[in-house]
Amino acid sequence: MRLRSVIRWEFLRTIQSKQFLIMSLLIPAVVAVAIFAATAADKGAQQSLREPPPPFVVALILATILFMGAFLSGVMALYSVVKEKQGRVVELVLSSISAQEMMAGKVIGLGMAGLIQVAVWAAAAYFIAGRFTPISLAGLGPVHWITYPLYFVLGFMLIASIYAATGAVMKDVQSGGATGLVGLVPYIPIMFSAFIIENPNHLLVRIAGFVPPFAPSVMLLRVGAGAAPAWEIGLSLASLALGVFLTMRFAARVFEIGLLMYGKSPSLRELWRWGRAGRAR
């Protein structure tokens, strides 16, 4: 009931903000106009692709969109958490609900807004790409339709909660420093996407599919390549869900304890202690 109120509040605040409207509508519009303007001048480009792209290309595009969207809503989560701390709203909020509820509400609410943004982008990408290549979703089977949304939603929540935890550690937006780099961990597999697509069953790739921060992108690519057996998908989704839960809980605890900290950022050792401790100490 209260969690629903938090989700609703964070969601509405986000989609009503100027940044959100600019990011989700203006950017695709500008990109579309730019591409059409460029290709109208060069007739040859329109004829360049005749063959529909294989499913792994769709997977790669989706993975990229996922991470761009997740990155943006992650940054929004980070700002939202830091602002809450600076704006002193947090005392009032925590006298009504637990830090866990607050974090969960933020991550889900911002995640929903981010997914809408991603849906707009995906639709725009589909529309734009359709002008140049006979792109088709027919190549996607039931396994894609079931697993992609799950990886999308969980991947989104994981990245948003990693950023929320980062925001909980930071004392203000300026003092990002090394803590900001934590949010980049889930992107690492994207750098190795060519390797993953060519060797979808390499042992390292299979293991990476079970590691929460890497799971969404690795598994999107493996499923796209048609290489992941059902049990591996199930296990990786479960570990991803667990990862989301643990990150969110860690973020909540750090946030709670961070309330007491004025003016200094905690050391890694302190963070570890806080995250493990059952309560604020």
């Binding site: 605040r13 704006g87 002193r88 709203v89 947090v90 005392e91 009032l92 006298s95």
Partner: peptide
Amino acid sequence: YLPEERGLYS
């Protein structure tokens, strides 16, 4: 609770 450090979503 009326906290000493006031804060509302500005």
